[in-house]
Every structure is written in C-alpha cells, then in structure tokens.
Simulated scan of single mutants.
Amino acid sequence: MKSTTRGTLAAVITCVAAAAGAAATPAAAVGMVPVPVPLDGVEKSLGLELPKVAGELPLPMPGAPEGPRYVEGRLIPEHVVPRLPLDAGLPGADLRAPLPHILGSGYDHLGMDAPSSNLRTLGPGLSLDAPLTAPNPDRFGLPDTQLPQAGLLTPVLRTVPGADLGMGSGR
C-alpha cells in the first residue's frame, strides 16, 4: 500500500473516530444518576412482598466565578474574592411499601415520590476598599484618605423541593 493511501486511510479513520466520540453523550452531561435498590431476589426467596426503593443522585456542576468588577472611584475592584456558583440537585427517591390488610388477605400500597429538584448555590465572596481614594484633581492628583471598607458576600442557596405521598391498592 502506498504512503498516500495509508495517509488518506488514517485521516478517514481519525475523522470517523472523532465523529463517534462527539456523538456519544458524556456521563457528566447527565444531571442525575439513577440508583435502583434490587430487592427482587430477597422477595422471591422469602415469598413475601418487600418495599420497592429507587433513588437519584445529582452530579454537581461547577460554574464560572464572577470576575472582579472595576468601579470608578475605587482603587480595588469589587468582588476581590469572587463567588463560585455550583449547580446540582437534591437527591430524589421513589418508595413503595406494601401494607397488609388487617382483616382478610391482600395488600394496599403506600408510596412516596420525592423527585430530584434543582439546587443553585453561590459561595461566599469578599469585597474590599482601600483606605485611599482615587486621585483628586483639587489636591494636585494626591488621593484623599478614607476609612478602609470590607464586606462579606453571603452564600446563596435556591431550590424548590417537593414530594407526593399516596396510598392505593394494587402493585
């Protein structure tokens, strides 16, 4: 095989591999990871109905921090220590438990569904100001003095959790 044919074949294989890699969804792109709890074997071996349990675990996704903002009249920019955003979710759960009838045979079921919900956070930050002001043209370009300032930016937590609790017959 000629070297030009080998080079062309290598380029085609490289392009196909790159296209296949781009088409595959990475695991980090998925927001939640399902977590089933397998109890079927225990249920069949004991011969009775056991609760059904499943859950979802979130994958935290860090965001880009807010950069410092320069403000006219200040020597030090705002947000010296930037706040770091983090997007994730609260874990979800799906539970179904059998409730035997007190009189007679059969089961009712008690179920709880707590779907995962989005969680957005911002870490704490710091804002400082120097004890000197910007140059003052009335004082020949010399800065004025002022009291130093320091501020702590509090963390932020935003979410809306929810759950459904119900009871019914059947599986």
Rank of each mutant, 00 (worst) to 15 (best):
V53I: 05
L110N: 11
G111S: 09
D87T: 14
S105V: 06
N136P: 04
D108F: 10
E66C: 09
A130D: 08
L84N: 14
G111F: 10
R83Q: 15
L128Y: 08
L122W: 03
P85Y: 09
P100H: 12
G92K: 03
I102W: 06
H101L: 13
L103I: 06
L152G: 09
Q149I: 11
G106R: 12
I102Y: 04
S105A: 10
P58D: 12
L142K: 10
L75D: 02
G104R: 09
L110G: 15
A88D: 04
D87F: 15
T145D: 15
R83G: 12
P65S: 13
D113G: 03
G92V: 04
S116V: 09
E56V: 08
L110H: 12
P100A: 14
E72P: 00
P91W: 14
M61T: 15
G89D: 11
V71P: 00
P91T: 09
G92W: 03
Y107Q: 13
N118P: 06
D87W: 09
V81A: 12
R96P: 03
I102S: 04
Q149F: 14
Y107K: 15
R83N: 13
A88P: 00
R69I: 00
A130T: 12
R120K: 11
R120V: 09
Y70P: 00
M112K: 01
L75T: 02
D87R: 14
Q149R: 11
V53S: 03
V80S: 14
